[in-house]
Simulated scan of single mutants.
Amino acid sequence: MSEIVFRPATPDDVAALHPLIERAYRGDTAKAGWTHEADLLFDDRTSAEELSGLIADPDRVVLLAHRDDDLVGCVQVARTGEDLTYLGMLTVEPGLQAAGLGRRLLAAAEAEAAVRFGARRMEMTVIQRRTELIAWYERRGYARTGETRPFPVAPPRPELDFVVLEKGLQGTRP
């Protein structure tokens, strides 16, 4: 894979960012990769308005990954406590999954959390039925906390409950 450049998203990035996230998480295009939710959920993953709000929030950063001039991935980091951040929306272009970009985005997010927010811990939630994705995060140092959280749908769908994973960020370098 050629050089990957990471940078924080700006409002001007929403038009390219939104379709990337939808391609990676939902619909038939997502099935080209292995991390999709296309067999579990059928609505939109996010909206342009939601992404604009995330980008504008000083307690969040959306990191973009570009290869040459192409947007190929993103990840969100949110401050959730004095030393705690939340990792979300880790996205890799479906055709590029399994090429190491997810690991690089994860490392960039952890470094950003430590530098930007002074975080010592990172947590995330993964749909409990996504056992292969949970195992991927566990191989990268994340551990189950024992906590679960409901998936935000009505009526509740317990089969979509989230597993909470956490990792210490001591020693994380930018």
Rank of each mutant, 00 (worst) to 15 (best):
A111G: 15
R157F: 14
G81M: 00
T125L: 13
L71T: 08
C74Q: 02
Y137L: 00
T145Q: 04
V92G: 02
A109E: 02
V115D: 14
V153L: 14
E138I: 02
Y86T: 11
L101K: 07
P152K: 09
Q76H: 12
Q128C: 12
A111I: 04
M124Y: 01
R129T: 14
V77M: 05
D83M: 06
M89V: 11
A114L: 06
R140H: 15
R129V: 15
L96I: 07
A135Q: 08
P152H: 07
G141R: 01
F117G: 04
D70P: 00
T125Y: 08
V72M: 04
G88I: 07
D68S: 12
V77E: 03
R157G: 10
M89F: 12
E112M: 05
E82G: 14
R120T: 13
D68F: 08
G102Y: 01
G81D: 02
G141D: 05
A119P: 02
R130H: 11
E110I: 08
R79A: 08
Y86K: 10
T80C: 14
Q128I: 11
Y142C: 01
Y86G: 02
T125S: 12
D68L: 12
P94M: 01
A111C: 13
Q76M: 12
R149Q: 14
G102K: 00
R79D: 03
T80L: 10
V92Y: 00
T125A: 12
P152I: 10
A108V: 09
F117Y: 10
A135F: 02
L105N: 12
G146L: 09
I134E: 00
M124H: 04
T91P: 10
A99C: 14
A99V: 10
Q76P: 00
M89P: 05
A111R: 11
A154H: 12
Q76N: 13
V77F: 07
Y86W: 11
P150Y: 07
L96T: 08
A154P: 04
Y86Q: 12
V153P: 09
L84F: 07
G146F: 04
G100F: 05
V153T: 15
G95T: 13
G73V: 00
V92W: 03
A109G: 09
Q76W: 05
A154G: 10
R149A: 13
G118I: 07
A113Q: 04
W136M: 02
L90G: 03
G73S: 01
V126R: 00
D70C: 08
A143H: 11
T145W: 04
F151N: 07
E123D: 10
A114Q: 11
T148V: 13
A113C: 06
T145G: 03
P150T: 13
G95K: 11
T148P: 06
L96F: 09
P158I: 04
D70Q: 14
Y137I: 03
L71A: 09
T145D: 04
R157Q: 15
Y137P: 06
P152V: 10
R157P: 10
M122N: 05
R103W: 02
R149C: 12
L87D: 02
G95L: 11
E112W: 06
E82Q: 13
E138S: 04
Y142F: 10
Q76R: 14
G102A: 03
A154I: 12
V75I: 06
T85G: 03
P94Y: 03
